[in-house]
Write a protein that binds this DNA or RNA. Sequence first.
DNA 1: ATCTAATGTTTTGCAAGCTAATCATAAAAC
DNA 2: GTTTTATGATTAGCTTGCAAAACATTAGAT
Lengths: 150, 150
Amino acid sequence: MIDFEKSVTYVLTQLAIGYRTYLEKALGEIGLHSGQVFVMISLWKTDGQSQIDLVKNLDLTAPTVNIMIKSLMNGGFVECRKCPSDGRLMRVFLTDKGIECQTSVAEQWTKIEAQSYLNLTETEKLVLAQLFGKLRENLSLNIKTGSTKL
Amino acid sequence: MIDFEKSVTYVLTQLAIGYRTYLEKALGEIGLHSGQVFVMISLWKTDGQSQIDLVKNLDLTAPTVNIMIKSLMNGGFVECRKCPSDGRLMRVFLTDKGIECQTSVAEQWTKIEAQSYLNLTETEKLVLAQLFGKLRENLSLNIKTGSTKL
DNA sequence: ATCTAATGTTTTGCAAGCTAATCATAAAAC
DNA sequence: GTTTTATGATTAGCTTGCAAAACATTAGAT
């Protein structure tokens, strides 16, 4: 019988909950939530994306992104404008507030990274990044091919 | 400026979403959901725990566990009995169905693990476990001491 | 030009996590 | 013995993720 608690699935899931808690606390003062910040990260890279762009870039679903954008609009971080050339598209643009808060977010983010890396050597950091890459490959393998059945 | 997308926080969060999706699909036929299965894993180890026991063992909050137990009761996986010696405690016991499904869950879980490990050597598996351990330490550090402020 | 397809957004309804507040019971103080 | 305090369970309300279905608009077929 498999030892659930030592499995990647188990440990990684637990870690992710921890990271979410950290993010919530770190972003609370800025006015962002743990999920919304990922939308911001994508917009800081490429402003004016449509929802479907964000869906693809963030690997989330349309309803998830849709709701997050609404919250971000309420918070004054982004604003939406219908694309004039294609009425279906809703382009999302950063407001000044949305642009400016990047610095604060980066600060908080850097602190969490530093804490994560507390007792890791440079080599270990590299190895971790590599292993994460492999895990991601392995998982997305089936997703991309569509054969999600296990 | 920090490269958000290459950070542990970012990558690990994305991975966790992937694992959740996998779990949902793998457990769907069994009738369990991705969160509930962690309660089951704890009960398979120690049956008859109270909610507060589960909260501590799973590192979750009381409301989260409370709702999961309700769902698990609805699904017929567990049943609850008030502790006769302490009326506050609600002990959670596995039903036959709850005990029996462990085999199926282990099967599915093993498949996900196998897929995770597809292109990893034995050494890499060990290193990954070690690194996960360190991350967990680093994160829970502040949590345990109470100084959650960043 | 019209009808159908496809594409993008939104709504609805669920599960999973949280905080804060409430209720029930037990333990402790007095 | 009564009151206060502490503990465990629950409720209410939020964010975040999903699937499925509905809606709006564009593109394609005829």
